[in-house]
Design a protein around this nucleic acid. Structure first.
Lengths: 215, 215, 215, 215
DNA sequence: TATGAATGAGGCTTCATTCAT
DNA sequence: AATGAATGAAGCCTCATTCAT
C-alpha cells in the first residue's frame, strides 16, 4: 500500500473523517498549491479540528500518497472505460481511432488537472513519498497499449512493438499533460491548437510515429 | 528587462557580490528546490551576510526573474551554436539531421537541468514574476524552425509549415525536458531509452510527424 | 467593538491566556514604550510561547485597540464612581467641589498613567487602530459635565453651557494628563505644584473660567 | 551645549553638510515620524551618502538634540518678536491683550508643528537626549511672563505672581500644543472652536484664572 | 573626506506538530 | 476519539552602523 503513513481507519467515523479530509484537500487543490495549503486550512475546509487531522495522518506529507492513490484509481477507471474492443480496432481507421482515444484522454486529464498538478509537483519534490502504485498503472497502460499495437501491427511501420508502445504513451502523456496543466498563461511551449484540435494533433504525431519504418 | 526587481549594481564590488549570489544560487539549485533554499542558506553559500542579499535583491522572489534571464541567455546561445547552415540542410539526410539536432538539444537541457527545473517549477508557481523574455525566445525558436522547414518543404508531408513548426518544437521540448528533469526516479512516463538513443527516438517522432500527409 | 483584531477566545484556557497577555503588556508598559516591547518580550513576560501571542492576536498592532478598550472601561468606571449627586452640587461650594473632583481625576490618571501613555502615543502614531469607542466616552463625559453646569448655572458667568462644558473638560484633561504622564523629568512646561496642590490649581483655573462673564 | 553627540563641524563643507541634513530632517518630519525616518532616507533626502551622516553625527539619536536646539532657537525668536512693550501693556485692555498674545502663540505653534511633534514625542521617549537648553527657554519665558504680570498686578486677583506666571504658561501651552499637534482626527479631547476662536478661548481661560481671588 | 556596499542582530510572523482538556 | 490551544523552530526582512574603496 502506498498510503503507509496514513493511520489505519477502522471505525466508521474514522473512515468518514478521512473521506472528509480528502474531499477538502481536493477542493482546496482547485484553488491553490499543495504547499500553500496549511493544516489548519485543511481542517477548516473539512470541518474538523487540527488535532483530528493528526489522528488520521501521521503528518501533512502523508496526504501525498493518498493523492497518488486517488490519481491511480481514477486513471485505472478511465483506462478501462476508454479501452477499445478488439473488433472495433480491426474495423476502424487507425488515424481516426487514435484521435478518438486522444480526445478522451485529454478531456480526462483536464478534468483531473487539480489532482494531477499536485501529483506532478509533489512527485518531483518528494519522490520518496509516492509509493510504487504508479508503476503498476504504468505496466497496465503499457500492456493495454502493447495489445492494441499487436492488433494493428500490419498497418504500422514500427517493428519493435514494445519500444513503440512505451514511446507513444510517453510522448502523448507529456504533451497532453503539459498543455492541460500549465499551457494557459505561463511560460513554455506555446501551441495554438486548443481542445479537440490539440488532441488531434497529438494523435497525428503518434500516428506519424507508428507509420514510420526503420531508419 | 526581466530583472526589474534586482537593485542596480553599479560598483565593481556590487557586481561581484551579485555574481557570487547568482553562482551560489545555481550551486544550491543542483541540490535542492528553490523554495527549499532559505535566504540564510544562500548568503552562507555565497559567503556574504543576509543583509547583503537584500541590498542586491528586493526580496527572495526577485531572484526568479534572474533565473529566467540566465536560462534565456544560455538557450539563445545554444540555439545560435546549434543552428544548421542552409547548405548543410540541403545536402543532409533529414532524419539524420533531426537526430543530430535532438542529441545536441537533449545534451544541453541535461547540463542545464538545475536551472530549467527551477524555471519550470517557479514559472508555474509564480507566473507573474517571469517577465516576457521567454516569449522572445520562443519567437526566435519558432522562426528558426520555420526557416528550417522551408528549406526541406519538398521532402515532408506537412503543408501548414507554421503549425508544423510550432508543433514539432512543442513535442520535442516537452518530451526532452520531462526526461531530462524528472525521469530518473520519480513517477511518470518511464521510457527505457537513455541518452542519445532517447534523443534519436524523439527525432524519429518529429520525423514521422513531418512525413505525415493530410488526414 | 474596538478589539476587532483580537481573535475570538472562547475556551476558558484561551481567555486565561489572553488575560495573561494583557497583564504582561500592562506590566511591561510600566517600564517601556509599546514600540520598545517586542513580541518575544511580551510572550516571555506572560510565560507563553511566541506563537501563542499570534493565536490570540492577529498581529502586534492588534493589542492597541485592546489597550484603548482597557482605558475606556476604566475611565467609564471612574466617571461613574466620581459623579456627584445633584443634591451635593446644590449645597456645596462650587470652587471646593471642583477641587475635589479634580483631585480624584488626577489621582486616577496617575494610577493609570502607563496605559494612558501608550494610548496617547499610539493613538497619535496609528490613529486608524483606535476604533470609535473613545468618542462615546467623550460624549458621556460631556453630557455629565453639561448636566453639572446646568445645576450650577446661576452661580457662573458663562452663558453658553455647551461650549463651557467642552472647554472645561479639554483644559482640565490636557493639563492633568501632561503633568501625570510626562512632567517628571522630561522637557516641557514645568510647574512646581505637585499632587493635590496641582489638582487644586487646575480646579481653580476651571473655576475662574466658569466665573467669567462675556468679553 | 545640547548637541553633544554631533561631531564638531569645523570645515565649511562640513557645516554645509550638517545644514543639508537638518533641512532634510525637517522636510521629512513634515511627512513622517522621526522613528519612521531611516538613515538612508535622510541621506537620500539630503543628497549625501549614508556614511556621511555618520561622519557628522555619532548616531541617529544625535539628531534629536539638534531638533531641540532648532525648537529652542525658533521659540526664543518668537518670544522676542511677540513680547509686548511696557507702555502697550499699561494702556491696553488685559483680556484683549491676552487674546492677541494667544493668537500669535497658536499661530506659531501650528507653523512649527512638525518640529514640535518630534520634540514632544522624542523628549518623552528619550528624555536623556534632550539637554538642558529648554530649561533656559523656560526660565526666559517665565521671567517674561512674570514681568508682564508685574505690570498688570493691580488689575488681577492672583497675589502669588510667581505661581500664577508658571501656571498660566503651563495651561496655555498644554492646551495650545495638544490642539495644534493632534486634535485633528485622533482620539482625545475634542473641542469645536478652531483657529483664532480657539486661541481666544484659551486666552479667556487665562484671563479667568488671573482674575481669580483667593479661595 | 565622501561614498555606498556590507554587516548582522533582532523584529515580526507562520505553521507543522504536540498535548491538555 | 475529537478538540483546539499552545508550542517553538525557522523563515523573511529591516535598518542602524561599520568599513573598504
Amino acid at each position: 500500500m502506498s498510503n503507509s503513513f496514513a493511520r489505519p481507519a477502522t471505525q466508521t467515523r474514522s473512515i468518514k473523517t478521512q473521506q472528509k479530509l480528502m474531499d477538502a484537500l481536493e477542493a482546496l487543490l482547485r484553488e491553490k498549491d499543495f504547499d500553500a495549503i496549511s493544516v489548519p486550512d485543511l481542517a477548516a475546509e473539512a470541518g474538523v479540528a487540527v488535532g483530528t487531522v493528526y489522528r488520521r495522518f501521521e503528518n501533512k506529507e502523508a496526504l501525498i500518497p493518498l493523492l497518488f492513490e486517488l490519481w491511480t484509481t481514477r486513471s485505472a477507471l478511465q483506462m478501462e472505460t476508454a479501452a477499445v474492443k478488439a473488433e472495433e480496432v480491426t474495423s476502424a481507421d487507425l488515424r481516426q481511432l487514435l484521435r478518438t482515444q486522444m480526445r478522451a484522454a485529454y478531456s480526462f486529464i483536464r478534468e483531473q488537472a487539480h489532482i494531477l498538478r499536485a501529483v506532478h509537483l509533489q512527485g518531483r519534490l518528494r519522490p520518496q513519498l509516492i509509493g510504487e502504485d504508479w508503476k503498476q498503472l504504468w505496466k497496465d497502460a503499457l500492456a493495454g497499449n502493447r495489445a492494441f499495437l499487436e492488433l494493428v501491427k500490419d498497418r504500422i511501420g514500427q517493428s519493435d512493438l514494445d519500444r513503440a508502445a512505451e514511446m507513444m504513451i510517453y510522448i502523448a502523456n507529456t504533451a497532453l499533460v503539459e498543455k492541460a496543466l500549465f499551457n494557459e498563461d505561463g511560460p513554455g511551449y506555446v501551441v495554438s491548437a486548443e481542445g479537440d484540435a490539440f488532441a488531434d494533433e497529438i494523435a497525428d504525431i503518434v500516428y506519424g510515429y507508428l507509420s514510420l519504418g526503420p531508419a
